[in-house]
Lab assay of single mutants.
Amino acid sequence: TETREFDNEEEARKEAERLRRKGQDVQIRKKGNRWELRRT
């Protein structure tokens, strides 16, 4: 599992969408005042 953190939700969602188009399974969750993007 690979995780990346983003400062805002929009960036996290854009990156998640990009990875999903490549066929990756991605989850986003709020972590304090940041957003965590998890690739499984």
Score class of each variant (00 low, 15 high):
Leu19Asn: 02
Ile28His: 01
Thr3Phe: 12
Glu17Gly: 05
Glu15Gly: 02
Lys30Gly: 03
Lys30Trp: 04
Gly32Leu: 02
Lys14Asn: 10
Ala12Gln: 00
Asn8Ser: 14
Lys22Arg: 11
Glu2Val: 12
Asn8Met: 04
Gln27Gly: 05
Ala12Pro: 01
Glu5Met: 14
Arg39His: 15
Glu17Arg: 10
Asp25Asn: 13
Asn33Ala: 07
Glu9Lys: 06
Lys14Tyr: 09
Leu37Ile: 12
Thr1Tyr: 14
Lys14Gln: 13
Glu9Met: 08
Phe6Glu: 00
Arg38Lys: 12
Lys14Ala: 13
Arg13Leu: 14
Lys30Leu: 06
Glu17Thr: 07
Arg4Pro: 05
Gly32Trp: 01
Ile28Met: 05
Asn33Gln: 07
Leu19Glu: 04
Glu17Phe: 06
Glu17Tyr: 09
Gln24Ser: 07
Arg39Leu: 15
Gly32Asp: 06
Glu36Asn: 00
Gly32Thr: 00
Trp35Val: 01
Glu9Ile: 13
Thr40Ile: 14
Lys31Arg: 11
Ala12Tyr: 00
Lys31Leu: 11
Val26Leu: 03
Ile28Thr: 02
Asp25Ile: 14
Glu17Lys: 08
Asp25Gln: 13
Ala16Pro: 00
Asp25His: 13
Thr1Pro: 12
Phe6Asn: 00
Leu19Phe: 05
Glu11Ala: 09
Ala12Asn: 00
Arg4Ala: 10
Phe6Met: 02
Gln24His: 14
Glu9Thr: 01
Val26Thr: 05
Thr40Met: 12
Lys22Ala: 14
Gly32Pro: 00
Lys31Gln: 07
Phe6Tyr: 10
Leu37Cys: 11
Lys22Glu: 14
Val26Met: 05
Phe6Leu: 01
Leu19Arg: 04
Arg20Leu: 07
Arg39Gln: 15
Ala12Arg: 00
Gln24Arg: 05
Arg20Tyr: 05
Asp7Pro: 05
Arg38Gln: 13
Ala12Val: 05
Glu36Ala: 03
Arg18Tyr: 09
Ala12Phe: 00
Gln24Asn: 07
Thr1Leu: 13
Arg21Thr: 09
Thr1Ala: 12
Leu19Ser: 03
Thr40Ala: 11
Phe6Trp: 04
Glu2Leu: 13
Lys30Thr: 03
Leu37Thr: 04
Gln24Tyr: 15
Ala16Ile: 03
Trp35Asp: 02
Phe6Gln: 00
Arg21His: 08
Gly32Val: 01
Lys22Tyr: 10
Arg38Ser: 14
Ile28Arg: 01
Glu2Gln: 10
Arg21Trp: 07
Ile28Asn: 00
Thr1Ile: 13
Arg18Trp: 07
Thr3Gln: 08
Leu19Gly: 02
Glu2Thr: 11
Arg39Thr: 15
Glu10Phe: 11
Asn33Tyr: 04
Arg13Gly: 04
Glu36Phe: 08
Arg20Phe: 05
Arg38Asp: 10
